[in-house]
Simulated scan of single mutants.
Amino acid sequence: MIASTPANDRSPHLHAAAAWRDRARAEWFDVSRYGANALPIGVGGRGDAWYVEGPFGAGVLRHYRRGGLMARLSTRHYLWLGARHARCVREVDLLEALVAAGLPVPAPIAGVWWRDGLLYRAALLMARVPVRADLMSLVHDDVARAPWEAVGATLARFHRFGAHHPDLNARNVLQRTDGGITLIDWDRGTAGHAPGRWCDDEIARLERSLLKYRRHVTPAQMGEGMARLRAAWREAMASDGAAR
């Protein structure tokens, strides 16, 4: 149960994943407590994010930050619509559901929000995924050997589950050190959708992000890679169970 908070209460309010419900602490979200050991993450997403280490092990701390036109009003504040609608609460709950379904996402630790009248700020703490590189870097390094098929099969697993990623770009698709694929940055993500046109739209969004920052990779090379990705996706969607 998520307790309501009065508008004048600016203290931190935690929403922890089940495994951390009695152990999560608000001070874990204070970047200054980590000092020089908080390593900024320089690429991907709008949020301020750092690699951190604490009682939770190796983690990623992300403070939510606005983009687009609304960022002109405030980069960190969102309209308060109740605790259940706080971005950190929704992302923790979604990540827990995806982890429970066996899908490759970062395990959530906790979220926190701070009320400020009609507005609020929020942050999220997740377990750190051992990463080799993101898809953008892998394509730039060697477009022919990039893990196109693995990405396609992994996307099919999410789509079969009905998990919609609202910002599927090449920085949010990571290859782990064990060779597997993980999807990150599930802010505003949802689940429970029947597979449909939205799946194709997500893949098209991923392709646009690759083409936007393709550097020396030609459109033809990118098209060949995406054709491999789509073929693997179609095969996995048609199978009895998407490849793990």
Rank of each mutant, 00 (worst) to 15 (best):
G179D: 10
G179I: 02
A194S: 07
D185G: 12
R188I: 05
P195T: 03
E202Y: 00
H193F: 12
I203A: 09
E202W: 04
G192K: 11
D185R: 02
W198S: 03
H193C: 00
T177Q: 13
T190D: 12
L183M: 13
R171S: 08
I181V: 11
E207P: 01
A194Q: 15
L174G: 05
N172T: 09
G192T: 13
G189I: 00
R197Y: 05
I203H: 02
H193W: 07
G189Q: 09
P195R: 04
G192M: 12
A194K: 06
W186I: 01
T182H: 11
D187A: 10
I184L: 14
L206R: 02
G192I: 06
D178V: 01
R188T: 12
W198D: 15
D185S: 06
G196K: 12
H193D: 07
W186E: 03
D185L: 08
R171W: 13
H193L: 15
R188F: 05
V173P: 00
L206C: 09
T182Y: 07
A170V: 08
G196N: 03
R171K: 03
G180M: 05
R176H: 00
C199P: 11
I181S: 12
G192D: 11
G196C: 14
N172Y: 13
G192W: 14
L183T: 00
A191L: 05
L206E: 13
R197T: 15
A194T: 10
D200M: 00
T190C: 07
V173M: 09
R197Q: 15
N172S: 06
D187H: 03
R176K: 04
H193Q: 09
A194M: 14
D185W: 09
R205A: 15
A204M: 09
R188G: 07
P195F: 04
T177N: 11
T177P: 06
D200R: 10
L183G: 01
L206G: 08
G189K: 06
V173G: 02
L206M: 05
A204V: 08
Q175T: 07
L174A: 07
W186T: 03
R176D: 08
A191V: 08
R171E: 13
V173C: 10
T190S: 12
H193G: 01
L206N: 07
E202L: 01
D200T: 06
G180V: 08
A194E: 14
D187I: 07
G189C: 03
E202T: 00
